[in-house]
Amino acid sequence: MIKKLALVFLCLVLAAAGGAYWAYGEIESYVSAPIDTQEKVLVTVPDGANYHSVTRTLINDGVISPSEWSRFAAKTHPELTRLKAGTYEIDPSMTLADVFAVFRTGKEHQFAITFVEGSTFKEWREILNQTDYLKHDTENLSEAAIAKKLGLSSEKVEGLLLPETYHFVAGESDLSLLVRASKQLQNALDLAWASRAEKLPVKSAYDLLTLASIIEKETAVDEERGKVASVFVNRLNKRMRLQTDPTVIYGMGDKYDGNIRKKDLRTPTPYNTYVISGLPPTPIAMPGKASIIAAANPDSTPYFYFVASGYGGHKFSKTLAEHNRAVRQYLKVLRSQ
Rank of each mutant, 00 (worst) to 15 (best):
K3C: 09
L14W: 10
Y24K: 10
S29W: 14
D36N: 15
K40Q: 14
V41C: 07
N50M: 02
N50F: 01
Y51H: 00
H52Y: 14
N60I: 10
S65K: 09
P66A: 11
E68H: 12
T76Y: 15
E79R: 09
R82C: 04
E89R: 12
D91F: 14
P92I: 08
M94Y: 06
M94F: 14
M94T: 04
D98F: 00
I113C: 01
K122A: 15
T131I: 02
H136A: 11
L141M: 15
E143W: 02
I146Y: 03
S153D: 14
E158A: 04
L162C: 12
T165I: 00
E172V: 04
R196W: 04
P201T: 06
K203F: 05
S204T: 10
Y206C: 11
D207E: 12
T210W: 00
T210R: 00
A212E: 02
A212N: 05
V221E: 12
G226D: 06
K227E: 11
S230H: 10
L236Y: 12
M240Y: 03
I260V: 13
K263I: 05
R266S: 15
P270K: 12
P270Y: 11
V275N: 06
S277V: 06
L279Y: 01
P280W: 01
P283H: 03
I284Y: 04
K289R: 14
I292Q: 01
A295S: 12
A296Y: 07
P302I: 08
G313K: 12
R328F: 07
R335Q: 09
S336W: 09
